[in-house]
Amino acid sequence: MKSLGRFYLIATLVFLYTPILVMMAMGFNESQLYELPFTFSMRWYDALWNNKILLTAGMNSIIIALITSVLATALGTMASVALSRRTFRGKSLLQLMLLPPIAIPWLITGTAMLIFFYWTGIGRGMHALLIGHVALAIPYVVLVVGTGFRTIRADLEEAAMSLGSTPVHAFFSVTLPLLYPSILGAALFAFAVSLDQFVISYFLATPGYTTLPVQIYSSIRKGFTPEINAISTVLLLGSMTVILIFARFAKPGDTSDKR
């Protein structure tokens, strides 16, 4: 039974990774029509290097992801402090309100944003994308930092205050350093969420200001070239790296108390 289980897991990994590896390999294949036999070539990476539209869109994606990461982490951490350490009425309602951005299909959220931003005159473009991306990333930040809070004992802060520290000082000198790995993890998480976000961006982008996933989507639909494989490979490796770093900072399933 054990070897059957392992075989099944390997089959699952083959299913999960085969298309990704094939896609990556085709980025190094000479043929424009993805024809075999395979002939190694860097042609599509050279072409990518000269493709201003894709590179600009990629740059936009990174800039948006960086700003989103900073804003969402700042706002989300503040909210997490209140939700984890304070008691007040309506708290469970506020926690429930974090779910819609995650749980409602992005198609619905995205089209709703499009209507609202159009109607209020906020419009589309970079600022609209930022409003949307930060809203999507905040719930993840609150959850990740909130998990961090659960592993830190509240009485450490109280001990500091009973020794004469002000609440603010106690927070910054005791709680924040202990929370630092979670906050960093949350920031990386927010970065990845923004970098990979397509649906919301698709509705809020303008012809003049797009992000990489939006540009990839329109290229795929137009009839594609292996340049898309090249940029997709770069994007995949990029987000995989971010997630692996995140996994190191906030080990999933790690319940050991940091005391």
Binding site: L13, I20, V22, P213, I216, Y217, L235, L244
Partner: peptide, 28 residues
Amino acid sequence: LILILLPFWTNGLVRVFSWTMVLRENGF
């Protein structure tokens, strides 16, 4: 577990696109 979860956190669009390489006529 990390290997299984890793694709989930990569771009969905790119993963869908990669299936066209496998399933198309004369594909993988």
